[in-house]
Design a binder for these strands. Structure first.
Lengths: 199, 199
DNA sequence: GGCAACGTACCGTCCGGTCGGTTTGGTGAG
DNA sequence: CTCACCAAACCGACCGGACGGTACGTTGCC
């Protein structure tokens, strides 16, 4: 496992530096020094600095997508499926908090083809989420007086914002926060104004 | 008004370029070319590239803060005050959409003292918002079973996320969206599960 | 003539990426 | 076991160029 160690160390160091300093202000030299390797070694495993950034996104995107696929394949009542999806994406986003920070801050720095690939993957997730909302609306459980795009944005905004306020060292528990946010969201999109707030 | 024209043009050009390309990847040369001025002229009005970024934030922050002060000074029932505040910050955030993009993406690139100043200003707004929630909770109109920090983050996430999905050219109307998002938020934080959704 | 408002040429620095060379780890013949 | 051999892994000095910022000259208005 010696060969992957270098790539791993570099990825780890890059993630931390990108998260704290930003992509553009982090030099390749800094990364390789933090990783304890040389520039030559790094360029042996990665094509470019850009490649490093993409690798970080890749890992997070593919994991979240595969989890979404699995949950939706299980089926069930639309509101319960949606609840599971919401809790899951919030929890995994907390697990990948540094990745999220880098993601939303530096995605626009990717070269065009790679950025398009990332956008495509994100849209896939987004669209799948949208079908859930649509189903719920068709069944009459979710409100239709607010545009679907607004409802969807209203949820993803929470996911997005996590890296700006949530701290694993803070008082809030990951699982609880995920349920609380999901609860706030579900209550706000239900067709009738009321409803209990079971976990 | 000839003297301010240069500074204005530069600020405008910088804002647009920062929003589309990011701060770090935009060179001073690009900015001055887009503004139709020279580098010398720019450095006559701004101390540094950093200064340009701060000026963009400054404008947005001071405007939103003064509007918040005014609304809260008017007083009224806590839920109505909060509603007004929410609608206002969403609408002004839409008015300042490019600023928002640059803000959340490049704030961490500011030099330490300036970044601290920005953080301080943001916290002021944040704290004032928190007192409103607190008052509502004390009066029994807002729920207390979810941590206040989560409720607050749940709202600001929407404000934050606007620059990622909202487009003035899109189908959504600014005023409507502001009311819809506010509505979703208020419904989710009310103490009882129900309630009408007046605009 | 004096001062603010610019214009321009240039500097020191740093950065992503490269490239020729060296080390290392595995293999198979003897 | 040994040694020749090779490919992959790795090293690090170096390059071309871009960038932020400055020094100093020039203009034009009072």
């Amino acid at each position: 496992m010696r060969t992957t160690s270098v790539a791993d160390q570099v990825t780890r160091a890059a993630l931390e530096l990108f998260a704290t300093q930003g992509y553009a202000t982090t030099s390749v030299q800094q990364i390789v020094e933090a990783a304890g390797v040389t520039k030559g070694a790094m360029y042996h495993y990665f094509q470019s600095k850009d490649d490093l950034l993409f690798a970080i996104y890749e890992r997070m995107l593919s994991l979240q997508k595969s989890r979404l696929d699995e949950i939706m394949a299980r089926g069930g009542a639309v509101e319960e499926v949606l609840r599971t999806v919401c809790v899951d994406v919030i929890e995994t986003s907390i697990d990948f908090l540094p990745e999220g920070t880098v993601f939303f801050r530096s995605m626009h720095m990717l070269t065009a083809p790679r950025r398009q690939e990332v956008v495509r993957r994100r849209r896939e997730y987004h669209d799948q989420f949208a079908t859930l909302i649509e189903r719920g609306q068709a069944e009459g459980v979710f409100r239709t007086d607010v545009p679907r795009s607004v409802l969807i944005a209203h949820f993803f905004s929470d996911v997005h914002y996590l890296s700006h306020w949530y701290s694993p060292e803070g008082p809030e528990d990951k699982t609880e926060v995920a349920q609380q946010i999901t609860d706030l969201f579900l209550r706000s999109i239900r067709a009738n104004g009321g409803g209990a707030t079971d976990g």
